[in-house]
Nucleic acid binder design. Structure first.
Lengths: 228, 228
DNA sequence: TTCATAAGTCGTCAATTGACGACTTTGCGC
DNA sequence: GCGCAAAGTCGTCAATTGACGACTTATGAA
């Protein structure tokens, strides 16, 4: 941890070899360098948390720390852009509509959806960043992602009930809880894979199939329990 | 964020009123002061992450920062003790044996167990600390808690199968995945309550009952799917 | 009352960290 | 080749942060 000498603070000559930085340090046009910084920042913040240092990021990019500030006024601004493009972005790319495609059985729709969702959204980078962000935000203000997930749980339950010919006479909050049983358990599967480093043996498709299966087969019992 | 003046660094005279520190700053005997620091440290690290500062902790305790070092050699040591006593501790207090009490139906056993588990383990403090710790640890070494949870999922599945008179001819990893469907979905319920600030309306007991219900009713289908 | 000792504070140090003014280097259009 | 704008670096500043030596103060047993 301790530095070897007293006064070599900011002068690590030739920082190209530091970390995993690339060699061949060529000059990059504005847009490219900016994209590179965003990419590396995503990696860094996902791995070491939102408190990761700008100097580490610069080293990762193979540039001086000062140059970061040509692209982002403050670390806070960088953080915000990482969140917007790497958390919100992939989330918006998800095709939720397919869950309502009644020409296909619910089992198939759910399997397809969650296979995609795990690949597109619930990857290591996304999950770690999302958790770090969620833990950090003090305000309990409901955000964009929560609102979409809430709508998602609602869709899943209503579509399932429709396929089974079941009427739902219950509180909207109860409906959400039913939807959360599958969405939560699959999200937690991602968490234990990427955060706890568990559940690495059984194939992802098999796990999804299992979760869809338990949801569809336990659905009626849940409805009975929560119906009012 | 910026301080008002230049040189009032470490001299916030009368730091008793800062933060939520108590008044009546009486002297405390060693053991009591130590316990107080541990308690406040748990709060602080749970709320602001493992990077929370020793000065903030001192302020919270209503003591000088220097005094902390009379009880803990380094921040690292304090962190370790918080983890051991506040993460491992409550976990060890859980009574897993009741899950194997075959004189009571599985439904009752699971409901009872997870009600207790949510209260004893999956509270806000525990969860946030656990997540911060899990995100921070770089090594993928399986730890104490993972091994217990693995055993737990195994017990749940085997006890359920026994009650239903089902034989389990499958990979141990597949058995764990079945157990994870209920343990994961209830853990995720705690996460969304304490981290995402969602799922606050439906009562905890009702949610547990719902998760137990979907697990028991979907159990057979899961086994069929994963059986080899 | 005395005073040894446990409890507690002051002030400071070195390292870290976000931020930035002043400067240097590169390479493209002419 | 020339020049100039874009790309990039150096060195530094102020604040923060973990750590600690030297000191002060309270308290209870004799």
């Amino acid at each position: 941890m301790k530095a070897k000498s007293t006064s070599l603070r900011g002068s690590q000559r030739g920082n190209e070899q530091a970390g995993t930085a690339k060699k061949k340090s060529k000059r990059l046009p504005y847009a490219e360098r900016r994209a590179q910084i965003l990419e590396k920042a995503t990696e860094l913040f996902a791995e070491y948390g939102l408190t990761a240092q700008t100097r580490a990021l610069a080293a990762e990019c193979g540039i001086s720390q000062r140059l970061l500030y040509r692209f982002f006024p403050t670390k806070e601004d960088l953080l915000k852009e990482v969140y917007d493009t790497r958390i919100i972005g992939p989330f918006q790319a998800v095709w939720f509509a397919e869950l309502s495609d009644r020409s296909r059985p619910m089992s198939e729709r759910l399997n397809k959806f969650y296979k995609d969702y795990l690949d597109t959204v619930l990857g290591r980078r996304w999950l770690r960043l999302f958790l770090y962000s969620s833990l950090a935000e003090a305000d309990m203000a409901p955000n964009y992602i929560s609102s979409i997930i809430t709508k998602l749980t609602e869709t899943i339950v209503q579509e399932t009930a429709h396929e089974k010919g079941i009427a739902l006479n219950m509180d909207p909050e109860a409906i959400h809880e039913i939807g959360w049983t599958i969405h939560g358990s699959i999200s937690h599967y991602a968490i234990r894979r990427h955060i706890y480093h568990a559940s690495q043996v059984v194939s992802q498709d098999m796990v999804v199939a299992t979760h869809v299966s338990v949801f569809l087969n336990g659905f009626d019992a849940m409805v009975s329990q929560l119906d009012s």
